[in-house]
Design a protein around this nucleic acid. Structure first.
Lengths: 344, 344
DNA sequence: TTGTACGCGTTATCAC
DNA sequence: GTGATAACGCGTACAA
């Protein structure tokens, strides 16, 4: 593969001139620039970002650490990240932890080893605590996507999120306004695992708040915790419904879990919303294709990705935003068909 | 950030010894190895893959070029790629073309600039023709994911796929066996755009074959072409149904398009499968959650990704598989609820 | 078992 | 406007 040295030999100019020409330096004659480029082309020259990275200490690459690319929420978010990054000439290395704490931690090392210019992190439990101790010193710019360690860290890290408490509050209140009082909430393993699930904790708190306002006593038995996948959500919901027949509504902390709930209810021969109302969170594209269409709280997924990336690139280029946190606007609760008025 | 030079200074040994120790070279005393590693740890040393890459001409990174990460088919495939790559110590840089030919071409350059060790490509129209001319010479290992340029290239490139002709043939035949004769087929822009959609062409040919066997005349009006997204598929299907009321079944070339078809049919106030039967392709996870559950031809998505990656890593390490193409086994047609016997 | 010296392909800082 | 040369951080023959 041709290098600038090869080009230099061909055009009988110095390697440094070639470098400048290829980088559009103004301090090189237009004609020689053209000439050099033509030769470069002819030799099939391709820039070597590795060598350049070593010299400039920049890779024009950012790392994206998420939990599950199969979840359309993350897929959309990833698109937002890629869009914004590519627009500014950056590539993104994707790391999927698959909800595996060890993989999550390892990924950070891999990414740092590759000298990414910045990190975009949707943390799950893997990073809790440990992260802060280990990496606090040699910090590279990083922005968190909603989820990070602990609420205490809200003013220590950059992040992009929506107001999850408000969102869950609104959704739960809607269910209550329909007459529901026995409302279950299905969420991630927020108590079993470490912390690090602050967005889910926020949603749980929003749920609690709505209950409290309505004078409904919070019941811990109505909280289902499992990993955020369709089948795990389905299984736990099935068990749950069998033992808690009196529940009339289920609020899922993400649409993927709502899908599992749907499947569980169908499998048990029950009907949505006739027997049980279901509300979700995220508004992934297929939510409106389900039958019945899922009522869910929208998250600006693509925008979360692009906004976080924008901040990260600012950070990389030395521009610190005034506030650490960016709370995005949501389209709110999308009322569709999966929740109905509770008749007695 | 500490370098091996810093470590060398600390332990009062040569930088080369440090390098060897960190790379588990057998030619360095165990005790000094331990010592060096301890110091490295204390200094917070992190390996610099950029510098290493320059020295070794290896990046332990592969590039993955796909069309749309929002499509669960690609998400699953990506997971397979990541799984296999990570297992062997490779990272993957993801490039999403979003069906944009220009972006697709550009991505290849970016990836090569970053000196990835190999390329995994699900080509769409962007690479057709051009690709072969431009990059034929300085080839880096590459494996195609089902889709590539032209059927003529089948023995020129490495690829992993399923037998798409057989699959589409089987699916269409099933529809025919249910009594359907006016069967539409919705697919990508295979005639409008360039070639480069050989898997879709294969599926179309399987469809034609089945019709032919059944003595049904192929009708070009029943082929809908659009970009493989939910809303585009929905729109074109709506228009189509209005003008072709006599159609009793629609075979979609991927599940995402089947979703669009579902939406179109619902929006028109029709019922699946009562008014129109629908068959898909891929068997993405939500297919079985739809109401009615989608009948679809399964593709081993994760395995396609992992198998292709395995081949690519073999190629990278100098082991050429005997055959260029690997045809994976599928679980075949998953018969669910979206197709029914046609009554007269 | 450890040290020396060079190269990887580029950018950057001087000169001229 | 162009050239010479020293980095960048690491791996690796070749010596010792």
């Amino acid at each position: 593969m041709a290098t600038i040295k090869d080009i230099a030999k061909h055009v009988k100019l110095d390697i440094s001139t070639v470098s400048r020409a290829l980088n559009e330096s103004p301090r090189v004659k237009e004609s020689t620039k053209k000439y050099i480029k033509r030769v470069a082309n002819k030799l099939g020259y391709q820039k070597n970002d590795i060598a350049r990275g070593l010299a400039t200490k920049k890779t024009n690459t950012i790392g994206l650490l998420i939990s599950d690319i199969s979840n359309p929420f993350f897929a959309e978010l990833t698109k937002g990240v890629e869009y914004e990054a590519n627009k500014k000439g950056y590539s993104v290395i994707l790391c999927n932890s698959n909800w595996d704490p060890k993989k999550e931690r390892d990924s950070i090392d891999v990414l740092k080893g590759k000298r990414v210019d910045g990190l975009l992190i949707h943390a799950s439990m893997g990073l809790t605590g440990i992260y802060k101790k280990e990496y606090k010193d040699d910090k590279i710019p990083e922005v968190f996507l909603g989820n990070f360690f602990d609420h205490k860290d809200y003013d220590e890290f950059y992040y992009v999120s929506i107001d999850n408490i408000k969102a869950a509050h609104e959704t739960t209140s809607y269910l209550i306004s329909l007459g529901h009082r026995r409302i279950a909430h299905i969420t991630g393993n927020i108590t079993k695992d470490n912390k690090g699930y602050n967005i889910l904790i926020d949603r749980l708190n929003g749920y609690k708040l709505a209950l409290e306002e309505a004078g409904i006593k919070y019941n811990n038995d109505l909280i289902l915790e499992t990993s955020p996948g369709i089948s795990s959500s389905c299984n736990i919901t099935k068990e749950f419904i069998k033992e808690h027949k009196y529940v009339t509504a289920i609020f899922a902390s993400c649409d993927i879990m709502a899908l599992g709930v749907y499947k569980a209810i169908f499998d048990l021969g029950l009907k949505i919303p006739l027997d049980i109302s279901v509300a979700g969170f995220d508004d992934i594209e297929i939510s409106s294709l389900l039958n019945p269409k899922l009522t869910t709280y929208e998250q600006p997924k693509f925008e979360m990705g692009s906004a976080a990336t924008k901040i990260l690139l600012d950070l990389i280029n030395g521009n610190k935003p005034e506030k650490k946190g960016l709370i995005l606007k949501s389209n709110g609760l999308i009322k569709r068909e999966s929740c109905k008025f509770l008749e007695h």
